[in-house]
Write a protein that binds this DNA or RNA. Sequence first.
DNA 1: TATGAATGAGTATTCATTCAT
DNA 2: TATGAATGAATACTCATTCAT
Lengths: 178, 178, 178, 178
Amino acid sequence: MIEGSPLRADAQRNRARILDAAEAIFAEFGTRASTEEVARRAGVAIGTVFRHFPTKDDLLAAIMKRLLAQLVEEAGKRDLFTFFTHLVAQAAAKKTVVDLLAGSGVDIRLPDAVGHLEEAVGRLLEQARAAGAVADSVRLPETMALLTSLCQGALHGGWDQQLQARTLTVVFAGLKRD
Amino acid sequence: MIEGSPLRADAQRNRARILDAAEAIFAEFGTRASTEEVARRAGVAIGTVFRHFPTKDDLLAAIMKRLLAQLVEEAGKRDLFTFFTHLVAQAAAKKTVVDLLAGSGVDIRLPDAVGHLEEAVGRLLEQARAAGAVADSVRLPETMALLTSLCQGALHGGWDQQLQARTLTVVFAGLKRD
Amino acid sequence: MIEGSPLRADAQRNRARILDAAEAIFAEFGTRASTEEVARRAGVAIGTVFRHFPTKDDLLAAIMKRLLAQLVEEAGKRDLFTFFTHLVAQAAAKKTVVDLLAGSGVDIRLPDAVGHLEEAVGRLLEQARAAGAVADSVRLPETMALLTSLCQGALHGGWDQQLQARTLTVVFAGLKRD
Amino acid sequence: MIEGSPLRADAQRNRARILDAAEAIFAEFGTRASTEEVARRAGVAIGTVFRHFPTKDDLLAAIMKRLLAQLVEEAGKRDLFTFFTHLVAQAAAKKTVVDLLAGSGVDIRLPDAVGHLEEAVGRLLEQARAAGAVADSVRLPETMALLTSLCQGALHGGWDQQLQARTLTVVFAGLKRD
DNA sequence: TATGAATGAGTATTCATTCAT
DNA sequence: TATGAATGAATACTCATTCAT
């Protein structure tokens, strides 16, 4: 990872381009889009994609990992409620994460990356509880469950601004007192 | 149902067997499972599947319709909270409905069947509101949104009994007062 | 063939309806059209078609036979040149005959029916020769060859009135003196 | 041809093998023969055929183009009458062109390639007219019409040497004076 | 005899993956 | 290491033909 040889640098650049392309393609056409399409968008040959990610699932897993890391980063900048709101609003844009978290036939397990997100949300939850913004009885598992559920619902349901707000209102009320 | 000819009876039996097989196969392997597999499970030739459902999408739509009708029927027997609980508990068994309601790339439009379910939930909501079990401000759209969200979450998240209960507790609290 | 039982009459009527339907369908969509389509147009079940014509080729052969018989009848009412002109003009309408005479992958042999047409054209040729309208050296084989060639050309080339006339002018001039 | 990479050479070789195989297969069995059969004869996998020709129609169009180009080349070496004679004699060998020019349900448009052939025949016609071998009133459209008609007739009629000669005699006489 | 449901081999096409250059 | 051509299993769908009713 700290290799400085020019070839490695090229390879790293290709890896990044492929990930970018894959994220865009899968977000636009779903994970059924072909790897060839990803290669085309990335401007590399198909063989290069498979050299970096021996399997399509490996490629999908890599995207997930990156997207989850971004979420963790975003979580660090917000409180629980704005993070929730932000995620739900962005669900469509993050189609790939949501879909992959949802399973969609692809077998991907990223305990670490998911674990990191869970930890980040856990911190937000503790802060919120400490501030009295969330009932004491609320635990992390159901918070995560609600988060992923709402993201999937928002993504596939095509919720408009108003529906997002109304739905979050109910959930937030539930988190405050139950 | 008005048909009395024996041949029609055979055809109806096959149609039902194909639907049963398709429901099972798609629930187990996702909607990407092959039509051939469905035929095999149904114990009919592939041509028979396509005679009954000229397109794979037609087959998926037929499953959806049947599953949604079952939901509507179940809704008639329960109050809002037990219906919610029941659905979430059954999410995995109804994988196909949930997936199809969620989109998953398949283009299926069943406004009628979905509309019927929405109406049924609407009735449950009104009863709950009338009984003071749900806040006046809660409307049907967010109720449906929560329902589908939780089903997707439960399905893909593999929630255990306890997680289901805890998550529903939050949502029910939110519905009662927000 | 002289059976008078009502069932036979029904069967004969069905046979005729199937032939009519087949002629129409194959003329419109080519011989690749499905037998099912023919049955639909004829208003009978697919099984009935196969009872009358055990094979699709049998059905095609039967159409051919009937169409050729019509040609023979028309030949009896015309002289060589007007028969030629008439046939070429009708080529598109008689798509099926032309196509089948042309082979199109279907293996059909109708020596008798073709023979009858050949005899009819032979008679026209003799008359024309006797009237000095055609050179003595012109024989039947090349006359038939020209007839079928022009029909195929007209059919597939989509000749307009003018092109038909110009092409026939050349051929007729060749028949008169060579 | 400007490409120097060895892989490109391999691909070109395969492309040519596929075209050769397709020409042979379609000539022998008609355009209904399967693409799989073509791949088998070419000694490549089915995917390779579709990589080069994304659609069966694309493959057929490519064959046509090549065959038509050969005809144009042959036209350059002959006068109108020997070209006619040559084409008719070769009709069976060029089954695919003839069939495709004739339509046969396949939707292929090659205005350029066909146009080139028409131009070549046009030049032969002018030469023949200039030499007084063809009547002044004969125009290109009917010349082409006769050419294609006779090819189709010869192909499907299975004319022997003698019949070819006799038929051409009539047509040539018609071209000389009409 | 008519019906039309069932059969199943066959077809074009796609796509993850391999491998020669 | 990158390329992109080749592979071939898989998939949705068609259609001539059979056969139970």
